[in-house]
């Protein structure tokens, strides 16, 4: 039962990693750049949700939806204003740019009144509720908190929605085409740059979603974006560039972390993800779901 309990909390945490990794992967697939500010986009999402529910007094799910929309617009704006001028520059340049954006976001957030450097609690309607399986209904058995349930449920919903979007809509198929071959897509009349802008928007919205789901567990603060650094291993394990891979990688990292925290000596919980990714890179650099890693000359 202990093991199952750990597994459940690991899966919930893994969903968060998976969602952030999904944000990386969407952008990487479309534009071949790695967004180091993904975690900070998540942090912004958390703060926006906070403002929506606390400062404006909106109901939680309305604030949730509003945050996603605002973050989507923000992601698109980011692409249009800062990233598009660098189209065609070396990957390293773009990486440094996203690191800079992350820094800027982290610094600016602390200056906004009502956000600041303190940690905040995001009030959610499902707070402190638990669901019990087995046992006698009061103690014993498997206990799942609603926060964890919400994470898993929303992640599952989001994944299905994204799958349907990419599989069946015109726009989704155009995005797939763009990520497979930009030049060919362009020749087919797909507006590649506008598609990239939308991809940034979706990616920012997905991260914001992760931030809102994580907020009840870890609180909202300016440095919550550092969890984004843990989503890198998730993306690598899944094979950078595979959408189901990102989610599976996230789950693997989440579960391993949760188990390592309990069964291994203190200190291993924080680095378990990195040890796993080093092993993965040594054994199979292309990841579980990755394609080939060959490079064009």
């Amino acid at each position: 039962m202990q093991f199952l309990q750990l597994l459940v909390s690991g899966i919930a945490q893994g969903c968060i990693y998976g969602l952030i990794a999904l944000g990386f992967v969407l952008i990487y697939k479309a534009t071949e750049t790695v967004n180091f500010a993904q975690g900070d986009l998540m942090m912004l999402g958390g703060f926006l949700g906070l403002s929506g529910t606390v400062a404006l007094g909106m109901p939680f799910w309305a604030a949730f939806a509003a945050t996603l929309v605002i973050m989507m617009l923000f992601g698109m704006l980011l692409e249009r204003v800062v990233l598009r001028p660098l189209l065609g520059q070396p990957a390293f340049t773009v990486v440094m740019l996203t690191i800079g954006i992350g820094y800027l976001a982290r610094g600016l957030v602390t200056m906004i009144p009502g956000w600041g450097t303190e940690t905040h609690t995001l009030p959610v309607p499902y707070k402190d509720e638990v669901i019990r399986f087995g046992g006698n209904g009061v103690d014993g058995g498997l206990v799942i908190s609603m926060e964890h349930m919400a994470i898993v449920a929303v992640t599952a919903f989001l994944i299905v929605a994204l799958y349907l979007f990419f599989r069946f809509t015109r726009l989704g198929i155009a995005m797939q085409a763009t990520s497979q071959n930009q030049l060919a897509a362009f020749y087919m009349g797909i507006p590649v740059r506008r598609i990239n802008m939308l991809i940034w928007g979706i990616s920012a919205a997905v991260s914001a979603c992760a931030g809102l789901l994580l907020a009840p567990i870890t609180f909202v603060h300016a440095n919550m974006g550092f969890i984004g650094l843990k989503a890198f291993p998730a993306a690598v394990i899944g094979g950078f560039g595979s959408i189901p891979g990102a989610l599976v990688g996230g789950l693997v990292i989440g579960v391993i972390e949760s188990l390592a925290g309990f069964y291994l000596p203190e200190g291993f919980k924080d680095i378990a993800a990195y040890i796993v990714v080093l092993v993965m890179l040594a054994v199979k650099p292309s990841g579980l779901f990755g394609g080939n890693l060959r490079k064009r000359v």
Binding site: V82, P85, L86, Q89, T93, M96, L97, I99, G100, I101, G102, Y103, L104, A105, R106, G107, L108, V109, T110, M111, T117, A222
Partner: peptide, 21 residues
Amino acid sequence: QTGLQPTIFGLCLVGFVLFEP
């Protein structure tokens, strides 16, 4: 503000990458 330093570094970095590679 404690966020002054990261903000300035972030701005400098973004500015340099965009305008002075």
